[in-house]
């Protein structure tokens, strides 16, 4: 798993690449929380680009809900962008878009 960050206007884009499971979840948690602690000044949106996530299980849902709890307390909204049809199915089945909306 790799995460590449791009700052643009009031948003930070985080492009996740690889497989998101229990093994890689810790890296994703630490990387995103580090962003929250250090470099999100004047940003109001975190956009998670899932287009290069080739595998995800329910661990990914737990990671996203955890980040939602932390980031929303700092007035930063999280969005999901470009999931593959397979990952999108898991997002839809678990209802996560009600909390973390999908953007195009």
């Amino acid at each position: 798993m790799e995460i590449n960050y791009l700052n643009k206007d009031d948003s930070v884009y985080a492009e996740l690449s690889g497989e998101l499971d229990e093994y890689s979840a810790e890296y994703v948690r630490i990387s995103l929380d580090d962003l929250l602690n250090k470099s999100l000044k004047e940003k109001t949106k975190l956009i998670l680009d899932f287009s290069k996530v080739s595998f995800m299980d329910s661990t990914g849902i737990g990671v996203l809900l955890g980040r939602y709890n932390k980031f929303s307390k700092n007035d930063i909204m999280i969005y999901i962008k470009n999931p593959t049809s397979y990952v999108n199915r898991i997002f839809e089945m678990t209802g996560i878009y009600q909390i973390i909306p999908k953007v195009s």
Binding site: D57, G62, V63, I90, M93, T94
Partner: peptide
């Protein structure tokens, strides 16, 4: 508290 979603068996079943 450890950020587990509780959706594992639901996904297996689905």
């Amino acid at each position: 508290e450890e950020e587990h979603s509780g959706m594992g068996f639901t996904l297996m079943d689905s």
